[in-house]
Simulated scan of single mutants.
Amino acid sequence: MPDGFVINDTTYAGEAASQFIVKSITGADTVNGGNVYVKDGIKKKFTIPRWDANYEDLIQDRAATPTSKGKMTVTGQTLLPEDYMIYLEFNPRDFEDHWYATQLNDTLIDRALPYSVESVVVQEVLKRHAKYFNKLIWNADTTLSSIYKYFDGFLKKAKSAADTAVVSSPTTLTASNIQAEFLRGYNMIEDALRYDPNMKFYCSYATYDLYDQSQINQTYKGVDITQQGKDTFKGRKVEKIADFPDNTYFIAKGMPTMESNLWIGLNSIADEGLQLRQLQANSELYFIKMLMKADVQIGWNNETVYYGA
């Protein structure tokens, strides 16, 4: 079993800071940005109820004894969270040659982690899971054999749905063409949502930078090169998402409430959650473990626009 800790600094030259300096990583842009509704506590599956009716079919001439006209349609989209987990074993004795050695228990039989180390381990594992989860919800594909196989992400579901508005002939996005390509997608938004402020463009960091550069490059009414460009297109928010594929964008109504067209289903409440504890009574090893169940779903595919290969 490989050791979960790789200690490269085994020097001890006096007191150490009480906290680690940790490496910066991108996080859960999708969730933290208020772009999806998160439904937690799903034990098996959850149905997103959908109601629809043709507004013109409901209208008729006034009559003393009217007859029924029109119909209401109730359907649903299903969230079916799938299992995955984090599990890592390590030996707290790895810190005996580290500058945290002074904070270890005096007895070898109880080499528990110092609280400061334990706190960092938990926080940083959670941060790295947030980065993974952000990538998973957009890029997951059940045909893969990698750790992104657990369910179909938003992009796979959008591409697979027959009623998604798909922009024809996508191309490699550049600072020269991105505004024109964004406009093609914007023009495909349904009239009922064209001016909805919660309709957003989702794209990669690189695509966002191209849009930013395109604003600087404008001959007239351009952005000062020392400033960041506006994060809106035709009044709609352009959301940069970490690990989103390049040369791709997706337009949908994204909100942190049930009115959102983008949903995430979880069962993080009922499961064991995050554990950091001794492996077993006769072992010096510790483990960190987290169980997760997750899925994503689009409420109405015909209210989304997909651009990409």
Rank of each mutant, 00 (worst) to 15 (best):
M1C: 12
M1E: 10
P2A: 12
V6I: 12
T11K: 14
E15S: 15
A17I: 08
A17Q: 12
F20S: 01
I21H: 11
I21V: 09
V22S: 02
V22T: 13
I25D: 03
T26H: 09
T26C: 01
T30Y: 03
T30P: 00
V31S: 09
N32Y: 05
G33I: 04
G34Q: 06
G34K: 03
N35I: 02
K43W: 07
T47W: 09
I48W: 11
P49Y: 06
R50A: 07
A53C: 11
A53T: 13
Y55R: 09
E56K: 15
L58E: 02
L58Y: 02
L58C: 00
D61K: 15
A63R: 08
P66Y: 10
T67V: 05
K69E: 11
K71T: 08
V74H: 11
D83S: 13
Y84A: 03
M85W: 07
P92C: 07
E96H: 11
A101Y: 01
Q103P: 00
L104S: 14
N105P: 04
D106M: 15
L108W: 03
I109A: 15
I109E: 13
D110I: 03
A112Q: 11
L113M: 06
P114H: 15
Y115V: 10
V117Y: 14
E118D: 05
S119L: 06
V120F: 13
V121D: 02
V122R: 11
H129Y: 13
A130V: 06
A130K: 08
Y132W: 03
Y132D: 09
K135N: 09
K135A: 14
I137A: 11
I137D: 00
D141I: 05
D141S: 07
T143E: 12
S145T: 14
F154K: 01
F154Y: 14
L155T: 02
K156V: 15
K156D: 07
A158L: 06
K159E: 07
K159W: 04
S160G: 13
A161Q: 04
T164G: 08
A165H: 12
S169P: 00
T171Y: 06
T172D: 10
T174A: 07
T174I: 15
N177T: 07
A180K: 12
E181T: 05
L183Q: 14
N187W: 06
E190S: 08
L193E: 15
L193I: 00
L193M: 13
N198H: 10
S204C: 07
Y205K: 12
Q213S: 08
I216N: 05
I216M: 09
T219Y: 14
V223F: 13
T226H: 07
Q227D: 14
Q228E: 10
K230M: 10
F233D: 13
K234G: 00
G235P: 00
F244W: 10
P245Y: 05
P245K: 05
N247W: 01
I251E: 10
G254N: 06
P256H: 04
T257M: 06
S260T: 05
S260M: 01
W263V: 01
N267K: 03
A270F: 15
A270Y: 14
A270P: 11
D271V: 08
R277A: 14
Q278I: 09
N282K: 08
I288L: 15
I288V: 14
I288R: 11
I298D: 12
G299N: 01
N301H: 06
N301R: 06
E303Q: 14
T304L: 05
V305I: 09
G308I: 02
G308K: 02
G308F: 10
G308A: 13
